[in-house]
């Protein structure tokens, strides 16, 4: 993190370390599914069907992509973060393609807190902040449930204050 960004990385609140586990389990599930799908040509070959030989490399490709994904996952999760400022919320993400999204509290339309089965298991949730513009939607991943609720309350309060 050498390159300067609008707000220093240290001031952000990062995702909970447990979120990495959620991502890894999700990675394991998806990778297994993709590997199984990529094995189909090989299976057909075993049953004696004519399959172009280049199709037999798909499992290798799937494996390489999955391992690459796993390799950068830790850094990706570390790069996630949010920052509550006086008048807006800043969310950042990305390692190679870095992004920061600023949503002024006054533009907020509604706040959602979601948690899937995997996230619930680790006591985490995900907060989504919606505005009138569909591209201007902020996601805060890997929040501990209590923190997520509190953040939502604060955001709603700040939004009401700004609306006046």
């Amino acid at each position: 993190m050498t390159a300067p960004v609008p707000w220093s990385p240290s001031s952000f609140t990062g995702a909970d370390p447990a979120y990495l586990k959620v991502r890894m389990i999700r990675w394991a599930i998806y990778s297994t599914v993709f590997l199984l799908i990529s094995l189909i040509p090989l299976g057909l070959k075993l049953f004696g069907l004519g399959v172009p030989s280049w199709l037999l490399t798909t499992p290798l490709l799937a494996l390489v992509l999955a391992l690459w994904d796993l390799r950068i996952m830790r850094r990706q999760v570390k790069a996630l973060g949010y920052l509550e400022r006086e008048a807006d919320l800043v969310v950042r993400s990305g390692v190679m393609w870095r992004k920061q999204l600023v949503i002024p509290y006054g533009r907020m339309q509604y706040v959602e807190v979601n948690s899937g089965p995997l996230e619930r298991r680790y006591g985490l949730c995900q907060l989504t902040l919606n505005t009138a513009g569909s591209s201007a939607t902020a996601h805060v991943y890997g929040l501990p449930e209590a923190l997520g609720e509190a953040l939502r309350e604060r955001l709603v309060a700040a939004g009401e204050e700004q609306m006046l």
Binding site: M96, K99, L101, A132, A136
Partner: peptide, 17 residues
């Protein structure tokens, strides 16, 4: 009218500041 503001930087952009 701005609803949100996004800053972004890809690897090639970063190399060239």
């Amino acid at each position: 009218r701005v609803q949100g503001m996004g800053w972004q930087q890809g690897p090639w952009e970063r190399r060239r500041k």
